[in-house]
Amino acid sequence: MSDPTHEELLADIGQAYYLDNRSKVEIATDHGISRFQVARLLDEARAEGIVHIEIRHPNKGVDVDAVALAAALGVSRVVVVKTVPDEFQQRDLQARAAADELMREARAGMTVGISWSRTLDLAARHVDQLPTCNVVQLAGALPVPGGGNPLELVQRLGRVAQGKTWPMWAPLVVDSAATANGLRRQPEIADAMRMADSLDLAVVAIGAWGPNLSTVWDRVDNAVRQDGLNHGAVAECSGRLITADGHPVKSELDPRILSVTVPQLRRTPRVIAVAQGSARAEAVRACIAADIVHTLVLDEELAVALRGREKLAG
């Protein structure tokens, strides 16, 4: 085996010290050098960026100007919540913020549509008051571990709003376009999808078209995933794929989806969108380009990523 390069040596020593918790003396013995040389190499590894140390103060928020970010992104409103290490706590923070925005925006007599995600399922539990309005389910069911289902979500909001509900008694993704067409002809499903043409307010979640960034990606096979990528998909919203420049993707998946369409969301006067994590930055920008985002609820990590991209673009 050939001798490691100097950069590989820096990486090996950095891993041994910072990740494997080995002492400088032990590392020096392994490599036949002095502990003072180890110290110098660790300094060099940090200076060269081979070792990157990040300290995050858990109770100290990131300074993000939400008004400036909204203006830079071209949306009406941005709501930023703290980024925390615990996944459920993070989801609940964003759910509470989404619930507050829904209660803030809803008016008596409105038709309110809501899609499904684990965050939006939690959000519905935090909605404790709404004016009398109607509630439409915007996407079929896609059960995931630890999540509820969209039928319960819509019924819960309907009880709070004391209005009529339009549930969509169907899965989000079916095995073929023919199956989806058959389901769309069923009166209850047809009524819900027709109501999406006349929404006053909608609440949706934004996913990225990639592993662990979209519940739909995780539930379809590799051929469907790749077909979406081949068509330029970067974002997923209610099962609908969107390209970086904001165009709906007409992939093999699209006719198999039972949910609100991108054109229907474009016609909706107000759309509240929820997204989390810097890996979804491109997806958020795609949905903004598609003109389906007015209020954006996001975490600090994603806000910083979007802010950074806006600075680079500027």
Score class of each variant (00 low, 15 high):
N181G: 11
A170M: 01
A196H: 03
A178S: 10
L183D: 08
T179I: 03
V203D: 05
N181C: 03
D191N: 05
W166M: 13
M168E: 03
L183M: 14
L201A: 04
V203Y: 13
A178G: 01
S198E: 13
G158P: 08
V203I: 14
I206E: 09
S198R: 00
R159Q: 13
G158D: 06
E188Y: 07
M193I: 14
A177T: 08
D191Q: 05
P167I: 15
A202N: 00
Q186L: 13
R159S: 10
V203H: 09
V173W: 12
Q186D: 08
G163P: 05
S176Y: 09
A178V: 12
P167N: 14
G210Y: 00
G182M: 02
V174E: 02
I206K: 06
A177S: 13
A192H: 06
L201P: 01
A202Q: 04
W209T: 05
M195L: 09
M193S: 04
S198P: 00
D197H: 12
V160N: 09
S198V: 04
R194D: 15
A202H: 04
D175F: 02
G210M: 08
V160A: 11
A196M: 08
T165W: 06
G210S: 11
G210D: 09
T165A: 01
G163K: 03
L201I: 14
T179K: 03
S176P: 12
W169F: 13
D175R: 15
E188H: 09
T165I: 15
A180W: 00
L172V: 00
D200W: 10
L199K: 05
P167C: 05
A177I: 00
D200T: 14
V203A: 14
T165K: 07
A170W: 01
A170I: 01
K164R: 13
K164F: 08
S198H: 02
R185E: 12
A190T: 09
D197G: 06
A205W: 06
A180Y: 01
M168P: 10
Q162Y: 01
L201V: 14
R159V: 02
A178T: 13
D197C: 10
A161N: 12
A180G: 11
V174H: 11
A205G: 15
L172K: 07
G210C: 03
V203S: 03
M195V: 05
L201E: 00
A205S: 15
G158C: 06
D175P: 01
R184P: 15
P167V: 14
V204Q: 01
G182T: 06
V203N: 02
A190G: 05
W166G: 06
D191M: 00
N181P: 03
V174R: 12
W209L: 12
N181T: 11
G182A: 07
N181A: 14
Q162W: 00
N181Y: 03
L172N: 06
S198N: 03
M195C: 11
V173G: 03
A208I: 09
K164G: 15
R159P: 01
M195Q: 15
A202R: 04
A161L: 12
R185D: 10
I206D: 09
N181H: 11
L201F: 10
L172T: 04
R194A: 15
P187N: 04
V203F: 12
K164A: 13
S176G: 10
V203P: 02
G163R: 04
V160D: 08
A180S: 15
M168I: 12
G210Q: 10
M168T: 08
A190H: 07
A196T: 10
V203R: 09
